[in-house]
Design a protein around this nucleic acid. Structure first.
Lengths: 152, 152
DNA sequence: CCGAGGAACATGGGATTATATGGGCATAAA
DNA sequence: TTTATGCCCATATAATCCCATGTTCCTCGG
């Protein structure tokens, strides 16, 4: 499970260490992560092969020539890269991906259970602050309905 | 079930003993607790893997790219850590988490049935006093257990 | 009823390992 | 040739493991 935010350096070659806890969380083949630019904002989305397989399954359920399906396919798969980790656990992020996320000398890896995202650290901080404020309003969504004999 | 308040020391390395009764209450894999900064105040929330799995299930039910889901994911998972207990039952609390809760040399672990919280002791005392005062007004809410589909 | 012994628990410090990161060299593409 | 990409080794720092000690609580025997 990908959890927590880790800030790592991006060196002159565009390399960044994938945080060790994330490396441990990679299911299936170790040594490969899949990364693509998010279509919802200036950051990158990433995960392992199993995650992409899940997306593929979800989309396949929509039928062969469904418009929405094709849009998602272009948005996710067409720009995705399989990045291989070197033996110290680094990936080299291609120039266009770094540009999309506005990465400089630092990158923030944020774990979101089944996937993770790569942000410019200051942008991520702003996004998380916003999310916390909204979560405070919507907290009822997390309260679990309770059955008899259960709960307080 | 996590119950009661325990005050433990935080040493120079940021380590704190998880109270033994809480260790015994950890479901699923023993030796790991999940901790994240609360978005409701200056304290930490914590629980076992099952608790996080419950949250994950609740959120996953909302579908892949739901806005509210993403807010909760950022608010909870992006700042959560999986902390492993050493063989004497201690976790080392990362600097940023200690800062969020304003922890000094002491930390108060407060059990709340399915999860627990970590507070600076004096802040917790103030919070408990406030909760007691409010509970007196709302005591009617506890008079009858509620079934599914029912409730406020 | 009181005191001694033992077990479980919290805590302190030192040693070892893991991890992130920097640079050099070979190889492949432009 | 120049530029980029992958591979290998080196190192400082931070995190983790491991052993030792004091204290409290419980139990058992006097």
């Amino acid at each position: 499970m990908f959890l927590g935010t880790h800030i790592v350096g991006v060196d002159a070659k565009g390399r960044a260490s994938v945080p060790a806890p994330f490396r441990a969380a990679l299911r299936g083949e170790a040594g490969v992560v899949f990364v693509w630019p998010s279509w919802r904002g200036p950051y990158l989305e990433a995960g392992d092969r199993e995650l992409l397989a899940q997306y593929q399954t979800l989309l396949a359920a929509r039928g062969a020539f469904d418009d929405a399906r094709e849009d998602f396919e272009y948005a996710i798969f067409a720009d995705a890269r399989a990045l291989t980790l070197d033996d110290t656990g680094r990936v080299s992020l291609p120039e266009d991906l770094r540009a999309h996320a506005g990465l400089g000398a630092k990158a923030a890896f944020a774990g979101l259970t089944d996937r993770f995202e790569i942000w410019a650290p200051e942008r991520l901080a702003a996004r998380v602050a916003e999310a916390r404020a909204k979560a405070a309003d919507k907290r009822a969504l997390l309260s679990r309905p309770r059955g008899p004999g259960e709960g307080p």
